[in-house]
Design a protein around this nucleic acid. Structure first.
Length: 644
RNA sequence: GCCGGAGUAGCUCAGCUGGUAGAGCAAGCCCCUUGUAAGGGCUAGGCCGUCGGUUCGAGUCCGACCUCCGGCUCCA
């Protein structure tokens, strides 16, 4: 038989030859360094037989940066971890141990709880295995044999995995340790040059909190020590972008134990907030949204009607005032439903787009809180679009376009997920077919790449969720676009059609920033605190060199301030060097040093980072105007400005 | 909520096997009068997260709680 190599040459091999055989046929060195076989984008164990005409690429230890090559390395390292733990902790039960982004983990049920201090000991044991050397042997077995083997070993979790396994079952054995595993794996442990156990955590068996909580050990591995070192360095660098660190440091916000998980916004943080708010209002006006404001507190009855209480009562702030039960809203929908229902509605009013950025309160459970990214006060850039079934498609498409435009202003983009019907759905399959198709069409129309999350939709309708990463690569949901016919009917809302009869309504729930809190958190990490000129809370700082320069410096400040720029003068009794440094640390985009030389009319301007230039005040104003316009302040060519 | 870790000055952190709390930066005052990333001096600043326990004595040991961090679960 023949296989195709990456350089499109053909390799003749005997029938039944494996990837390893192919590597040997090319060269002994290649065979020795081979770690994985890749074929048309999928990976395959080197020990498996090839097919006639198959396209193959052999990855070696030299592909140390290749994500598939790292994946197999880490997967094999996870097995070494399991072997080490089994040896050190008799009676431990093993669950699963996959590679993940940047590393791997393995889940165990320990007879006695272990602590972080135990990790070095386990790491040493892995090192010992590496020194001794391990090689992996693959073997396909029958389900019955696999079950028998793991029963004898007392590995109940593995038995359960065999019972629910699909396709052929394979064992990988290294030393005296055999694991149930689909593979692929390394030939042997020689390529594993750097291993580090990075953490300990609880994790539920099969991700279900009703199940036993297992102990998860996280680790990572690389083809070289220097790769591990630079990875750890990158992690440190990412931590420096953490908004929880930068926020207080840049004087944007802080948290208080007196109101856990609710930020206290400082003046500089509010500059960011109102920049976002200005964009929101400008774009809403341009796109036909109507601003409304509805109460924050409603009687409990409202949330029984809306359906929030049955599901979320425990996560809502409730009050008992004058003997009547109340709750603080955790969503804007009830208020908007009441507003819509305040009088009969005609088809001529639809689509009707209500928008409201008021804060919502949710008593999020403690373990889930995370800086600005998971808070108890959530200010959504919320909107509810009331429309007919015929209008759904256009409305969704417009919202998706809006999202793409909005994120683009910040140089950010989101990944999209289409969440489809869950098990507890209400409504007919035909409805769901149509609605899911409408969302999907809107994504395609806007050329937004997306993945489908089957069964993840809300019970009342499918949704598009938009995600962004934080500095450490964790995914956070930003925007959401949800289609719903239940909420209007719960509130008895209808519209009168052309035929003079009542019809049921659809509503699109949508938030695009998601919440101001979370969006600003991501924004801080996205820029690492180095905000572009138009967003920077302080755009220009002027440093008078001597006392006699304070007055003219203040004049420059007033001139720039009158132009709408955020300018301040630093006339502290410190050296210029010190004040420059402070401006750098505070990440202020422009610094003007004002001394004797500036009295002639030209100004010395320093960009954040150190670049210096000299120009007239007028030239400076023009430059700043251009900088401010380079983004959200002005629509940036995205259409007309709203009427004032 | 669950597993693991941590809370000492405004910030970053020292503080050994229990003996009564320390540095740098920031702050205030003074000197210097400043030219592109830290000029100098002095001063003040602490219910050592909270409550309880052990002890002659607790920042240090034990327990509970609160908050934060890494995960899991959840996320209308």
């Amino acid at each position: 038989m023949k296989v195709l190599l990456p350089d499109s040459s053909e390799l003749e091999l005997p029938d039944g030859a494996t990837g390893l055989d192919a590597a040997r046929a090319i060269g002994p060195k290649l065979a020795e360094q081979a770690v994985l076989l890749r074929s048309n984008g999928t990976v395959q164990d080197l020990r498996l037989p090839l097919e006639d005409g198959q396209q193959i690429q052999i990855l070696t230890t030299r592909n140390a940066d290749d994500s598939d090559a790292l994946w197999v390395l880490r997967h094999s390292t996870a097995h070494l971890l399991a072997e080490a733990v089994r040896r050190l902790y008799p009676g431990v039960k093993i669950a699963i141990g996959p590679p993940i982004e940047n590393g791997f983990y393995y889940d165990f049920e320990f007879p006695e709880p272990i602590r972080e201090e135990d990790l070095p000991r386990i790491e040493e044991e892995i090192q010992r295995e590496l020194t001794e050397g391990r090689s992996w042997v693959r073997r396909e077995v029958q389900a019955e044999e696999a079950k028998r083997y793991f029963s004898e070993q007392g590995e109940g979790y593995k038995v359960e995995l065999v019972e629910t396994a699909e396709g052929p079952i394979s064992f990988y054995t290294q030393g005296d340790f055999t694991d149930l595993c689909r593979g692929p794996h390394l030939q042997d442990s020689k390529p594993i040059k750097a291993v580090k156990l990075t953490g300990l955590a609880g994790a539920y068996w099969r991700g279900d909190e009703r199940n036993t909580q297992l102990t998860r050990i996280y680790g990572t591995a690389f083809y070289s020590q220097s790769d591990l070192d630079s990875y750890l360095e990158r992690v440190e660098e990412a931590k420096r972008r953490d908004h929880r660190r930068l926020g207080p440091q840049l004087d944007l916000f802080h948290f208080s134990e007196r109101s856990p998980a609710s930020p206290l916004w400082h003046p500089k943080g509010m500059v960011l907030w109102y920049e976002l708010e200005a964009i929101r209002r400008r774009e809403n006006a341009r796109r036909g949204y109507l601003e409304v404001k509805t109460p924050i507190i409603y009687d409990a009855e409202t949330f029984w009607t809306s359906g929030h209480f049955p599901k979320y009562e425990d996560l809502m702030f409730k009050l008992d005032v004058r003997g009547r039960p109340w709750a603080m809203k955790s969503m804007n929908c009830p208020g908007h439903m009441l507003l819509f229902g305040s009088r009969p509605r005609s088809y001529k009013e639809l689509p009707l787009r209500y928008a409201e950025p008021t804060p919502l309160h949710r008593d999020e459970i403690p373990g889930t809180l995370h800086g600005l990214l998971r808070v108890r006060i959530v200010t959504q850039d919320d909107s509810h679009i009331f429309c007919t079934e015929d209008q759904i498609q256009d409305e969704i498409a417009a919202v998706v376009d809006y999202a793409r435009y909005l994120y683009g202003l910040f140089g950010m983009s989101a990944s999209a997920e289409l969440a489809t019907r869950p098990d507890n759905k209400i409504g007919t399959d035909e409805q769901w077919d149509r609605n899911e198709a409408a969302l999907e069409a809107a994504l395609k129309l806007n050329s937004i790449p997306y993945t489908v999350a089957p069964g993840e939709g809300a019970f009342y309708g499918p949704k598009i969720d938009l995600f962004m990463d934080d500095a450490l690569g964790r995914k956070w949901q930003m925007g959401t676009i949800q289609l719903d016919s239940q909420m209007p009917s719960r509130f008895g809302l209808t519209y009168v059609g052309q035929d003079n009869t009542e019809h049921s309504l659809y509503v699109v729930h949508r938030a695009l920033y998601g919440s101001f809190e979370r969006f600003i958190g991501i924004l801080i990490e996205h820029f690492g605190g180095d905000f572009p000129f138009w967003l920077a809370p302080v755009q220009v700082r002027i440093l008078p060199v001597g006392e006699e320069h304070r007055a003219p410096a203040a004049e420059v400040r007033d001139r720039l301030g009158a132009e709408g720029f955020r300018v301040e003068v630093d006339e502290r009794d410190e050296t210029v060097g010190k004040r420059i440094r402070d401006a750098e640390v505070e990440k202020i985009p422009r610094v003007i040093v004002y001394g004797d030389r500036e009295s002639t009319g030209s100004l010395a301007v320093r960009e954040r980072g150190g670049k210096q230039d000299t120009k007239s005040l007028q030239a400076l104003v023009e430059e700043f105007r251009a900088l401010a316009a380079s983004s959200g302040r002005v629509a940036g060519g995205a259409g007309p400005q709203p009427a004032q």
